[in-house]
Amino acid sequence: MKEKRRSALIRKTAAFGVLTALALIFSYVEAQVPAFFAFPGMKLGLTNIVVLIALYRMGNVSAMTINLLRIVLVSILFGSFSSFVYSMAGGMLSTAVMMLLKMTGKFRPVTVSIAGGVSHNIGQIIAAMIVMSTSGIVWYLSVLWFTGLLSGALIGVLGSIILSRLPEKLFMGGKI
C-alpha cells in the first residue's frame, strides 16, 4: 500500500515537472513569434493547453501552481516587470475562472477553455488600466474579447483532443 502511494506520488511529481517545463517552452516559443497577429496582446495562448490538461488530469491546485510557476519563471528568464504584471493578472484570472467552471461539472473542456481565454484578456486589460492609470484602453476590450474567445476555442478543441487520448490515470498513478 505504502509502496503504491509512493509510486503515485513519484509519478505525479514527474508529471508536474514535465507539464511545468512544457508550459515554459510554450511561453518561450510564443514570445519568439510576437507579431503574427494583427493586434498587440493577441496571442494563441499555447500554454493554456498545458493548464487545461493539468486542470483535468491533476486537479485544481496543480493547474494553478503550474501556471503560477510558469509565469514567475518566464518573467525571471525572459520577461520584464510589466510583462510579469500582465501575465499574472491574465493567468490567475483565467485559471480561477476555468477552475470554477470545471468544478461545477456542467461544462465541457472546450467551453471552460473559451471562458478562460476571455477572462485572460479581461485580466490583462484590467492590469493595463491600473498600470497605465488610464481607462482609455477599455475600448480595446472589444477586440480582445473576441480574440480571447477565438483562441480559447482553438486551444479548447486541441486540448480536448489531447485529453481524450491521454489515459486518465497517467498523471495520478495507478494502472495505465
Binding site: Y56, G59, S62, K102, G105, K106, P109, S164, E168
Partner: peptide, 14 residues
C-alpha cells in the same frame, strides 16, 4: 482533497 474531488467531476476526456 483536490485529487479526491477530481473523481466526482464530470470529465468528458475519458
Amino acid at each position: 482533497n483536490a485529487s479526491k474531488s477530481e473523481k466526482k467531476v464530470i470529465d468528458s476526456g475519458s
